[in-house]
C-alpha cells in the first residue's frame, strides 16, 4: 500500500500575529512557523497504518522550514519525502491544485492530510484536493483501518458521536486526530537525516486554483462586551466568592 501525507507549515499562534502595511496579509517578518498540528496527526496515522511492505511518502510545498519538516517526517519513519517546486505560495485552493498535479503521477492508495489549518480561508485542503482528483473524501477522521480494497474510517460529529464509513480506495482523508498522540523525533535523529537522507524534488506547474475570492482586510476581531480584566488571584477569588463557588 502506498500512503501520501501532505504536510504544511502554519504560523505559530503562540507568537503575536501582526498585519503588514497592506492591511491584507500577515507580517511574516517576525512570524514563527510550525507544522500544522492536524498534519502531524495525519503523519502519525499514516505511520501507524504503514507496515513493512507499505510506503509512506511525506509531501510538502517548497517554502521556508519545509525541508526540516520533511527531514523530521523521515526521522519519524516516513519512507520518502518529496518537496514540490515551481508553485507560488497561495491559498488552500492553489495548494490543492499543486498537490493534485503531483499526486496524479503516482498511484497512491490513501492520501492523508490534516482536517484543517488555521489559515485555510478558501476551504480545507483534503476535500479541495479530492474534488480536483475526483476521489472520495471523508473529513474529521479520528481512526482509519485498511481492509481489502477499502478503508474503514471513523468520522467525528459533535457531542462525542462518531459515524463509521467504508471508503473505496484510493481516497483522501482529512485527519482530526491519530489513534495515538503524534510521535516525537529527537533532534539528533533529524540531524542525522539531514546529513544522510535526500529530499526528492518534483516540479509541478503553476496552475491556478480556480475561482477565488479577494482578501480586502485583515484585523483582530472586533470585540463586543469584552472581559473585565482582574488584577490578581485575590481579585479572582473575590469573583468566585461572588458567584458562590468559593
Amino acid at each position: 500500500m502506498k500512503i501520501a501525507v501532505l504536510l504544511k507549515m502554519v504560523p505559530d499562534l503562540v507568537e503575536e500575529l501582526e498585519v503588514d502595511s497592506t492591511g491584507k496579509a500577515l507580517d511574516t517578518e517576525e512570524l514563527k512557523f510550525k507544522l500544522n498540528e492536524f498534519d502531524d496527526h495525519a503523519l502519525e496515522e499514516a505511520l501507524l497504518l504503514g507496515g513493512e511492505e507499505d510506503e509512506v511518502v511525506a509531501l510538502a510545498l517548497e517554502g521556508e522550514g519545509n525541508e526540516k519538516l520533511l527531514f523530521t517526517a523521515l526521522a519519524k519513519g516516513a519512507s520518502r519525502a518529496v518537496q514540490l517546486t515551481g508553485v507560488q505560495p497561495g491559498g488552500s485552493g492553489e495548494q490543492a491544485t499543486a498537490f493534485a498535479a503531483a499526486l496524479a503521477e503516482s498511484s497512491f492508495d490513501l492520501i492523508l492530510t490534516g482536517v484543517q489549518s488555521v489559515d485555510d480561508r478558501e476551504g480545507q485542503l483534503g476535500p479541495l484536493l479530492a474534488a480536483r482528483m475526483g476521489l472520495p473524501c471523508v473529513s474529521v477522521v479520528t481512526g482509519v483501518s485498511v481492509t481489502d480494497g477499502g478503508a474503514t474510517v471513523n468520522k467525528e460529529y459533535s457531542g462525542g458521536v462518531m459515524a463509521e464509513f467504508e471508503v473505496t480506495l484510493p481516497a483522501v482523508l482529512g485527519i482530526q486526530s491519530a489513534q495515538q498522540p503524534p510521535r516525537y523525533a529527537p533532534v539528533s535523529k533529524v540531524r542525522q537525516m539531514q546529513q544522510t537522507a535526500t529530499i526528492e524534488s518534483l516540479t509541478v506547474g503553476g496552475a491556478g486554483g480556480g475561482a477565488e475570492s479577494e482578501v480586502t482586510a485583515m484585523a483582530p476581531p472586533e470585540v463586543g462586551a469584552s472581559a473585565k480584566m482582574l488584577d490578581d488571584a485575590a481579585a479572582l477569588l473575590e469573583v468566585l466568592r461572588g458567584e458562590g463557588v468559593a
Binding site: L17, R121, E214, A217, M218, A219, P220, E222
Partner: peptide, 8 residues
C-alpha cells in the same frame, strides 16, 4: 486571533 474580510 484574526478576522479576514473577503470579497467574492
Amino acid at each position: 486571533k484574526l478576522g479576514v474580510s473577503s470579497q467574492v
